[in-house]
Measured scan of single mutants.
Amino acid sequence: MDSLVVLVLCLSCLLLLSLWRQSSGRGKLPPGPTPLPVIGNILQIGIKDISKSLTNLSKVYGPVFTLYFGLKPIVVLHGYEAVKEALIDLGEEFSGRGIFPLAERANRGFGIVFSNGKKWKEIRRFSLMTLRNFGMGKRSIEDRVQEEARCLVEELRKTKASPCDPTFILGCAPCNVICSIIFHKRFDYKDQQFLNLMEKLNENIKILSSPWIQICNNFSPIIDYFPGTHNKLLKNVAFMKSYILEKVKEHQESMDMNNPQDFIDCFLMKMEKEKHNQPSEFTIESLENTAVDLFGAGTETTSTTLRYALLLLLKHPEVTAKVQEEIERVIGRNRSPCMQDRSHMPYTDAVVHEVQRYIDLLPTSLPHAVTCDIKFRNYLIPKGTTILISLTSVLHDNKEFPNPEMFDPHHFLDEGGNFKKSKYFMPFSAGKRICVGEALAGMELFLFLTSILQNFNLKSLVDPKNLDTTPVVNGFASVPPFYQLCFIPV
């Protein structure tokens, strides 16, 4: 009986604490739906499609509103004006990374994606500088992407125009580009180590996009005490870190300090320079996690976009025909596509942009946080508050993009057929937390897609009208449904 009384008292205290925290903070924060004790607004949000729920709530509470995930307040920004004001106009104040408990377990605050403060700034600055020195957006990395595009075309030829699921092959190409940047090595598509790495990356994007992960991140005790797919994700990350550590040891034994070959060499050189400046942010643990982040951000996002792009091109054969006509006119058949071609191919450029806009790969991006107490639109948001960005509300804005739910390359073309930029184009987020590999991803999408369409016609196994382009999961990332196609050599 005594234990029951204690339990009831504990629960009562928890409920009172929950109510007090919510009521004391709500006077400062933007308005929002009334949260339930302990669980907050979790029942009012469709976990399978958070973005749709945010759109519905914005119609009631406006472009800036507050939700509670458990006891934790989260300020939501919906629509271009609110997102721009926060991420661009007040970029420094909104540059923090929001709480992501599962990532905390995986990387302990290291790396480039989930770190904060001085650690994040130094690692991000170093990573950007190193990638630029190796030619991100310049010639040397373009050579690597072109080489991988040629290998991709050869792998597709091996399908002999038979029906195939493109998931694996389209994942190999961007993964190999990242391998060449980090390890100075590309792998054969049949290499077992490479296959294991690909498998872990593919599993992780599916797990991260599941409703279960949303629950884990908002009720963090689940991570330590409950079984579930989150444990598989943590094991996959541990596998990748151990693999990278092996490569780091190989580099330490063979590195030429006067001739760095890749990202690992550059990081080890930085560690050597910083060894007298303790404590340094440049450690082996930081290198492991930064490399894992580059793999995660640079492989599955690009391969998922490529997979979605081919599905949309199957669905819209008239678009595919126009792209192939432009390829034939500008590039021809006797040389590989290059980035200089893009400025002469406005329709193809528009298609690449429209694919990214339409699929809305990361509907709410990753959570941000404010780095200080900030007054925002007459609300006071306390330091450390998590900020949720609705990228969907920007990419699918119906004023900027008429009929935003329709796939239409003319969203990025003017009346004369010239490519038209849009400030609403934010597939990689915006501001200080914009994806480090934005330029690389854009290069890969253009070169891989043009190389495929230069060499193959795409054949659907069903009537294009019957192809479903609805994402199968739409949590962290929008993942396309399973499909097969035939690559018919031109």
Rank of each mutant, 00 (worst) to 15 (best):
L311Y: 03
P471I: 04
E81I: 02
I207Q: 06
D463Q: 14
R150N: 08
D49R: 05
S209T: 15
T364W: 15
H230R: 07
C338N: 11
G91A: 11
K423T: 13
G111W: 05
S365T: 10
Y68I: 02
C151Y: 14
L170E: 01
F65L: 04
V462M: 10
N418Q: 11
T302M: 09
L17A: 12
A149L: 01
G137M: 07
L9I: 07
K465N: 15
I141R: 01
S478M: 08
K206H: 03
E85V: 05
G117C: 05
Q454W: 06
N378R: 11
S12L: 12
H368D: 03
H78A: 09
Q193G: 09
F401V: 05
S343Q: 14
P174F: 05
T159G: 05
I50M: 11
L312Y: 01
Y424S: 08
Q252T: 11
E300V: 12
G332P: 02
L485E: 00
K249D: 08
R357A: 01
K375C: 03
I387V: 15
L128I: 14
L287K: 01
I74P: 00
L413A: 03
R377S: 04
A86L: 05
E154S: 09
S3Q: 05
M129F: 08
E325V: 14
L467K: 02
K432Y: 15
S140C: 10
P464L: 13
H411F: 02
S429L: 06
L445A: 07
G137E: 11
L90V: 10
V479T: 09
E199S: 09
Y80C: 04
L201M: 08
G431I: 07
R157K: 15
K119V: 08
F425C: 04
L413T: 03
V330H: 11
Y308F: 14
I213Y: 13
N418S: 13
S24L: 12
Y308H: 08
H78G: 05
I169D: 05
M345K: 02
E288D: 04
V490S: 11
F187I: 02
E272Q: 13
F110Q: 10
Y347L: 05
Y61E: 01
E354V: 00
F487E: 00
R132L: 12
K249C: 10
I488V: 15
L361V: 11
F126P: 05
R108L: 10
F239A: 15
P63R: 03
L461R: 07
P37C: 03
Q22V: 09
W20V: 08
R132P: 07
I327S: 01
R342A: 09
D2K: 02
L43W: 09
L14W: 12
G384R: 04
I205G: 12
R108T: 10
M271V: 10
R144N: 09
M269S: 15
V113T: 14
L77M: 08
G111N: 07
L11E: 01
C13S: 15
L11Q: 01
E272S: 12
L447N: 03
V38A: 08
I45T: 13
R97P: 06
F446L: 00
I99L: 12
P346Y: 02
S254C: 14
R377I: 02
L467S: 02
W20H: 04
A149N: 01
G442W: 03
V153G: 01
C486Y: 09
H316L: 03
L395H: 10
T392V: 05
V352Y: 04
K247G: 05
T392C: 08
L7G: 08
N217K: 12
G475K: 08
V370N: 05
S58K: 11
L391S: 14
S51N: 15
V319M: 12
R335L: 03
K423A: 09
M255R: 14
N418R: 10
C435H: 05
K421L: 15
S478E: 04
K160S: 08
H368T: 14
R139N: 12
L391I: 03
G171F: 10
E438G: 07
F134R: 15
K72T: 08
E154M: 09
D373Q: 07
Q356N: 06
S51I: 05
G296N: 15
P166N: 00
S365C: 11
Q484G: 04
L366H: 08
S286R: 07
Y61A: 01
F482N: 15
L395S: 11
I47F: 14
E328M: 15
H184E: 08
P227I: 10
R132W: 07
G296V: 15
N378G: 14
I389S: 03
K421A: 12
A86R: 01
N398T: 12
T301P: 11
D191K: 02
Y225A: 11
R329H: 10
L71W: 15
I244T: 04
L77F: 11
P404V: 04
L11K: 01
K158I: 04
L77A: 03
V237G: 06
R150F: 10
V319A: 09
Q193Y: 07
L43G: 13
R157T: 08
I244M: 11
I222E: 02
T364M: 15
R21D: 03
P166H: 00
F267K: 05
V177F: 00
L361T: 11
L458V: 06
T304P: 02
I215N: 02
G137F: 15
